[in-house]
Design a protein around this nucleic acid. Structure first.
Length: 217
DNA sequence: GCGACAG
DNA sequence: ATCTTGTCGC
């Protein structure tokens, strides 16, 4: 397969320069969650985009995209595998989106461009990365109480947070994707986490994409 | 050289 | 991510 990782690293480094970390204070009406599920036998993937109203937290719209899997899973290069699908699903939405949550890292990535940051700079929309496990940066375990969080640090800079979204449940790794800073990314990841480990937008996107795969795409 | 390594 | 049985706990 024709894929030059060194070349792609340069692409990531260039795109990372376009990430803007800044306070996020705009009014939030609609939030979207993005996630991808796979059908191993069909070699296809399904990306789902779920729109929730805020603060009512109701599903007001959702869309999806089915694509052939043409890029392998290589740690730190996840966006080249899933971005085509999640961008297509996102583009199909009719609502005007205020904030996006993506399943994966934001800037907490070796070259500062996890899938959430890559998506954020290409779509130019406020984006937060929420990963279920660690990839990059030094961190310590936060206390077991919901709302508690510890910083993910690299070169003396806070690039994200390890966030406890539920009492005594394994924390999630949150980092800015674009147009938001660490504090606001953590704040919103918590506000959108209601009763479950993952924020509602991402949890529902996972459920919907998985259902589409299991119903025969 | 060795360990780590989103989904 | 997917595959895959039972099991612990609210």
């Amino acid at each position: 397969m024709e894929m030059d990782l060194e070349k792609l690293k340069k692409v990531q480094i260039e795109l990372a320069k376009r990430v803007e970390l800044r306070p996020f204070e705009s009014e939030v009406r609609f939030v979207v969650g993005l996630d991808v599920s796979y059908s191993r036998k069909l070699n296809k993937m399904v990306a789902a985009a779920v729109v929730l109203s805020y603060p009512s937290m109701r599903v007001v719209e959702y869309s999806w995209s089915v694509r052939d899997v043409e890029f392998p899973y290589v740690p730190t290069f996840l966006s080249f595998r899933e971005l085509p699908a999640i961008e297509e699903a996102f583009t199909k939405l009719k609502h005007k989106i205020d904030l996006v949550l993506v399943d994966g890292q934001g800037i907490a990535h070796p070259r500062g461009l996890g899938i959430a940051a890559h998506f954020g700079v290409e779509m130019m929309v406020p984006t937060i990365g929420c990963a279920k496990s660690h990839l990059f940066g030094k961190w310590t375990m936060p206390t077991p109480k919901r709302g508690e969080w510890t910083p993910i640090i690299e070169n003396g800079q806070v690039i994200g947070g390890v966030v406890r979204t539920r009492d005594n449940v394994k924390p999630i790794f949150v980092s800015p994707g674009n147009l938001i800073d660490v504090e606001n990314a953590v704040k919103w990841a918590l506000k959108l986490s209601i009763g479950y480990r993952l924020p509602e937008p991402i949890r529902l996107a996972d459920k919907i994409s998985r259902r589409i795969v299991n119903e025969g795409i």
